[in-house]
C-alpha cells in the first residue's frame, strides 16, 4: 500500500481534453496510473490516449467507477468541478489550479470536511507514489528527483520540492508517496491531516516536510507528533527564515503577520516535538540518515 494513490487506485480526469489535461493524462497513464475516464462537457464519445471522455463525472462513474478525481480545471471553474466530483461520490480529489478565490477555497474545504472527503491543493503539482500512480503534473521521469523508495514527502511548494527531493535521493533514499498540499493560504487538506496516512503506511519509514513561512500547518504537525499521532522520524526544511515580516514571499500563504507564522516559531515547535530541521536543502539527506540511525 501507499498513501493516497497506488497502482490499483482508479482515477478520472476532469478537464481531460484541455492542453494541460491531455498532456498529463497521458503521462499519468504512462507511469502506470489506472486512469479510467475523462470529463469534458460537450466532448462525450471522444477519447484521450484511449481513455473515454464523458460530459460529466456522474455519467463517467456509471460506466467506470473511479476513486480519485484529478482536476485540470481553471481557477474560476474549480469550485464547480470539486463539487461535481463530490456529487458523483468521489472522496479523493486533487486540484492544481492557482488563483481560486479565497471564499471558494473555504467552501471547498468545508464541503470536503462535511462529507469525509480529502481535497488536495490547489496551487499544487499533485500527488505521486513513484512507480505506482500519479495524480498531477509531476515529472516522474527525472530519476534524480523522483526515485522510488521509503521516504514520504509533504510539501507546500513545487520548485522547492524538486530541490529538496533531489537531496533526499542524493542521500541514498527514494520517495514512497509525495503529496503537494499547495501554496495557497487555505489548502483543502492540511499537513497534519495526512500524518495518520503516513503513520499507517508500511512503505514509509520516515517523513520529510517542506514548509515555509506563514500559516500554522508546521505547528500543527508538531502538535500531532507531541500527541503521538505521528511517531516516525521526521525531517523538515522550512523556507523563509530570513524573510521580513509583512512581505508576501511569492505564495499566497507565505507571509508572517502579527508576529505569527515565523520560521523560527515553526522550527522551535518541530524540534521540541522531536523532529529534525534542516537550515539548507543540502542537509536533508544527512539528517535523514541520522534520523533513521
Amino acid at each position: 500500500m501507499s498513501v493516497f494513490i497506488d497502482r490499483n487506485t482508479s482515477v478520472e480526469v476532469q478537464g481531460a481534453t484541455g492542453k494541460e489535461g491531455a498532456y498529463w493524462l497521458k503521462h499519468m497513464k504512462d507511469m502506470g496510473t489506472r486512469v479510467v475516464f475523462g470529463v469534458t462537457p460537450g466532448k462525450e464519445g471522444q477519447d484521450v490516449d484511449g481513455v473515454p471522455v464523458f460530459h460529466s463525472a456522474r455519467r463517467g462513474m456509471k460506466a467506470h467507477p473511479a476513486e480519485l478525481a484529478m482536476l485540470f480545471v481553471p481557477p474560476r471553474f474549480t469550485k464547480d468541478a470539486v463539487f461535481e466530483a463530490l456529487d458523483a461520490g468521489i472522496r479523493k480529489i486533487v486540484t492544481i489550479a492557482e488563483g481560486v478565490p479565497l471564499h471558494e477555497l473555504i467552501q471547498i474545504r468545508k464541503a470536503a470536511l462535511s462529507c469525509g472527503a480529502m481535497v488536495i491543493g490547489g496551487n499544487t503539482s499533485g500527488v505521486i507514489s513513484p512507480g505506482k500512480g500519479m495524480a498531477g503534473c509531476i515529472p516522474y521521469w527525472i530519476e534524480r528527483v523522483y526515485r522510488k523508495g521509503d521516504i514520504g514527502v509533504m510539501t507546500r511548494s513545487g520548485s522547492l520540492t524538486n530541490e529538496v527531493t533531489a537531496e533526499v535521493v542524493k542521500g541514498g533514499f527514494g520517495i514512497s508517496t509525495l503529496i503537494g498540499v499547495g501554496g495557497d493560504s487555505i489548502p483543502g487538506t492540511r499537513f497534519a491531516e495526512l500524518l495518520p496516512l503516513y503513520e499507517q503506511d508500511q512503505e514509509t519509514k520516515a517523513l520529510v516536510i517542506i514548509g515555509e513561512l506563514g500559516g500554522s500547518m508546521e505547528e500543527e504537525v508538531a502538535e500531532a507528533m507531541e500527541a503521538e499521532i505521528f511517531t516516525k522520524p521526521l525531517v523538515a526544511f522550512i523556507g523563509g527564515r530570513t524573510a521580513p515580516e509583512g512581505k508576501r514571499m511569492g505564495h499566497a500563504g507565505a507571509i508572517v503577520s502579527g508576529g505569527k507564522g515565523s520560521v523560527a516559531g515553526k522550527v522551535a515547535a518541530l524540534e521540541k516535538a522531536g523532529g529534525l530541521t534542516a537550515a539548507k536543502p543540502s542537509q536533508v539527506g544527512g539528517l535523514l540518515r541520522q534520523a533513521l540511525g
Binding site: S157, S159, L160, T161, G239, G240, G250, H251, P281
Partner: peptide
C-alpha cells in the same frame, strides 16, 4: 528565480 518556495529559499541562502 522561478517558483515561490525556491526563490524564498535562495533568498535565505544568500543571507546565510
Amino acid at each position: 528565480c522561478a517558483g515561490a518556495g525556491l526563490t524564498t529559499t535562495v533568498f535565505d541562502l544568500v543571507h546565510y
